[in-house]
Amino acid sequence: MEDELAISVRGLRKAYRETVAVAGVDLDVRRGEVFALLGPNGAGKTTTVEILEGYRKRDAGEVSVLGSDPAAPAADWRSRVGIVLQGTGEFDELTVSEVVRHFAGFYADADDPDKVIARVGLADKAKARTHALSGGQKRRLDVALGIVGRPELLFLDEPTTGFDPEARREFWELIRDLAAAGTTILLTTHYLDEAEALADRVGVIADGRLVEVAAPGRLGNRHEALATVSWRTPEGVVESAESATPTALVAELATRFGGEVPGLTVTRPTLEDVYLRMIGHT
């Protein structure tokens, strides 16, 4: 039975001995959506995702991924799911082209390996041994192996950790490209800007709990938060006021100062402020 949800999770729990990694997560990801699980290291992101990928057993809860329970999936389930893990295995002695071709052979309806290699930007490295690739290029190869089977749903676990800024921007383009083609994407990240740049919705996870799920601009009701207006008095003292109508306040200040307001700033809480508050570090 297919519905518009790619992933549906209710009451997911997982503990390792005494340590509770996931403490009751409810989560829905719609088809075609890019969903980011955002949280600090050790928050339970990877545990959650690896349960959804079928790598780990859960202690409790209901999980449905593309209509299957990942712990006992339907026969073709693995061909419909693409996985890009953290720190994945390499085939040092093989070339990029050989590895992608080999993995394409596992799928009934694989994409053209050369096309996939070009798509992840490794066309000029196709004949290179994988041990000669840079960190960013290896990650691109991981993505190539994750998408060569034309998955309906792609998991990306911290895909850009360790990237330089330029490599990250390029990688983001690749993800946007995949999302535009209709692939549902669940990505985990501890980078705020990554979640903001890529995700339709962000789920903030802390201490094994999903604290909030919202569009990046609406996390922590950021769009409704009061703006802080601050300025300098003629005596040189910085004053500030919180306001729901900052424009009116600025106009009033302009009248009071008869033109330019010295040291005027209008700020709203950044995603980082909201996020740090949510994960309990203020």
Partner: peptide
């Protein structure tokens, strides 16, 4: 070595 490097885990993520 292959298990430690995650090669086996990667295979398990495919329909192989």
């Amino acid at each position: 070595i292959e298990r430690d490097r995650g090669v086996l885990k990667r295979y398990r993520g495919t329909p192989m």
